[in-house]
Every structure is written in structure tokens, then in C-alpha cells.
């Protein structure tokens, strides 16, 4: 059976995922993706009636078991400096984001 994820599709996925792979990594990962898709293909043979709903969670979210939503109120975080201390680049207590690339639309 032909490979479902061709080198072209794979390269497109890598770009979308904001990754950059060397040739060895790319070869390994593309092979594993195609192997996993072989296993996933088993799902295609399962007869699914039209009325089978999707399950986003196993345990249903009944109102009696779910917490009420919190009030939409903001609270000052007590240790903001601890959060800022984790940022790779800071300037005047502000997180520095590198230049965002711009593309001119035609």
C-alpha cells in the first residue's frame, strides 16, 4: 500500500507545526506516522450508525457533578514577578517578542 503521508505532505505539516527537522529525524518521523496510520485504519471497518454521537469525554458532564462557572472577575496575581522571571527575554517588566514576519498580500 502506498504511503499516506508523502514527503510533500510531511514537509507541509512540519512547516505548519513550526518545526525544523534534520533529514534523519524527518525520515524516522514520517515512517512512524505512516505506521501509526496503518493502525488507525482499523477504525474504518467499524460499522457506525448515523445516530452514534461523538464523545468528547468519557464521563458525562451532568450538572449535578459539575462546578458552577466562576464569576467573571479579575484578581491580581500575587506573585507576578515569579511569572515574569520565567520569560526568556524581558524589558522593563515586559516580555519581549521578536519581530513578527509580515507578508504583503497581493
Amino acid at each position: 500500500m502506498s504511503e499516506q503521508i508523502t514527503p510533500e505532505i510531511f514537509d507541509h505539516l512540519v512547516d505548519l507545526a513550526a518545526l525544523e527537522l534534520d533529514a534523519g529525524q524527518a525520515e524516522y518521523l514520517r515512517k512512524q506516522l505512516n505506521n501509526q496510520l496503518k493502525a488507525i485504519r482499523e477504525l474504518e471497518a467499524i460499522p457506525l450508525g448515523e445516530n452514534i454521537p461523538i464523545s468528547l469525554h468519557g464521563v458525562p458532564y451532568a450538572a449535578a457533578e459539575s462546578a458552577a462557572l466562576r464569576e467573571d472577575e479579575w484578581h491580581l496575581y500575587p506573585d507576578a514577578k515569579d511569572i515574569l522571571a520565567q520569560a526568556p527575554q524581558l524589558e522593563n517588566d515586559t516580555i519581549v517578542v521578536p519581530d513578527i514576519p509580515h507578508t504583503t498580500l497581493k
Binding site: 488507525i40 477504525l43 474504518e44 467499524i46 457506525l48 452514534i52 454521537p53 461523538i54 464523545s55 468528547l56 468519557g58
Partner: peptide
Amino acid sequence: RALKVRTL
């Protein structure tokens, strides 16, 4: 499809 099989 996977979400439906999860229901099963």
C-alpha cells in the same frame, strides 16, 4: 470517527 468509536 474516533470520537464516535469512543462512544462505543
